[in-house]
Nucleic acid binder design. Sequence first.
DNA 1: GTCTATACGCAGATAGAC
DNA 2: GTCTATCTGCGTATAGAC
Lengths: 224, 224
Amino acid sequence: MHTKDRIVRAAIKNFLNYGYEKASLSTIANEVGIKKPSIYHHFKNKDAIFEASIDYLLCSIEEKVDLPYDKEHSARRNLEQFFNAIIEINSELSLLAGGHFDKPYDLIALLRTSLTHFPSLQARINIYYDGLASTLEKILKQGQKSGEIRMNLDPQLLSLEMLAWLEGLCMLSGVYSKISINTLRKKLYDNIWDMIYESDDTKGFFGAKKKRGLPKTLSLGTKW
Amino acid sequence: MHTKDRIVRAAIKNFLNYGYEKASLSTIANEVGIKKPSIYHHFKNKDAIFEASIDYLLCSIEEKVDLPYDKEHSARRNLEQFFNAIIEINSELSLLAGGHFDKPYDLIALLRTSLTHFPSLQARINIYYDGLASTLEKILKQGQKSGEIRMNLDPQLLSLEMLAWLEGLCMLSGVYSKISINTLRKKLYDNIWDMIYESDDTKGFFGAKKKRGLPKTLSLGTKW
DNA sequence: GTCTATACGCAGATAGAC
DNA sequence: GTCTATCTGCGTATAGAC
């Protein structure tokens, strides 16, 4: 790997861990194995490194999330793939940042705190979320067409809500000890699906009430 | 107001706007109308100011969210009150931070980025979210008891999901231009409610399918 | 391309007068 | 309680040798 790429990788790690301000070029240089002034041969300044890091991050995420949508499969499966992709990406970021796999790092927090310093970042972020939302919307519409998802839910609104839910989940699992995405992943997804699917009850002609399983009771203080 | 309180207020503003690292004591002192060294008469160091600020913030939020739960009202109403309380608090924070009312600031981002520097903060944050989650859970259980909310949804899990959804929403509206909480507030809440409520279809004996209104179509690029 | 040496600024923090 | 003056350290960034 070329020095420039190694700088970007080390920079991402430090930006994710400490944010733009606290991430220091000395540390980055140290981790790459060069001296601080050598960085300036590859990048004009700290801002340039940051911009390169964010672009690298968002592009590689977009690449990964582009895959899961597949018309051959059910909407339920496509949705699950999408969710898993997002959560896995967060976990990978956390590994890249040198943390636990269990405690995904929130890219969104970095973006948010950097927006005041880099207003131009806004346009790039919008493109990023536009992409995510439109993929989600496609899956949801597919699910409504196939009768898997209830028709009274607005797919466009729902795609934004799910995006918020996912981001919030990653975020919360970073600050609230009771939530661990990786142990909760399947349960959370099932619960969400229960909220949107078109049940046989509402589809059937005779309205026979089907048992869908009672909620499992969990003792207080459960580590999710 | 005493100087100490004025320092805390100014500190909160700066921490919310710039994060722990970039917030500077000179600026805070300036906004209070005193010189930097005077701060050290009231607080031992920057860390102490930060801890006081966070505690002040979390306590005042907890105070406000404690109100909305009321057994006299429907779960739907209690839930809406709870949501509004959270969103309003975020908007108030944004005003405190000197931003637009429309762009709520995310306390959670500040907490997240500060956790590496203040591991002891974790315990306080857990208490905070425990409180929110248990209030939510009470409302959801009340809704299931009264038949408003579907029984197949686990209230404990659902309370965490809703918390995540709310935090994610506030967060996303800070980085994604298409989401504005204040204009979307009602729509989003209705959409969420549609996901969890016990419809007449599943309750009724004859399974008569009731029209619940088709999703409104919205042109692409809509500013939510 | 990478280094040593160094400039410059601003951060947090302290001493001690008033 | 608030001030002026000052210390110390670390940050980004540059000059110029190899």
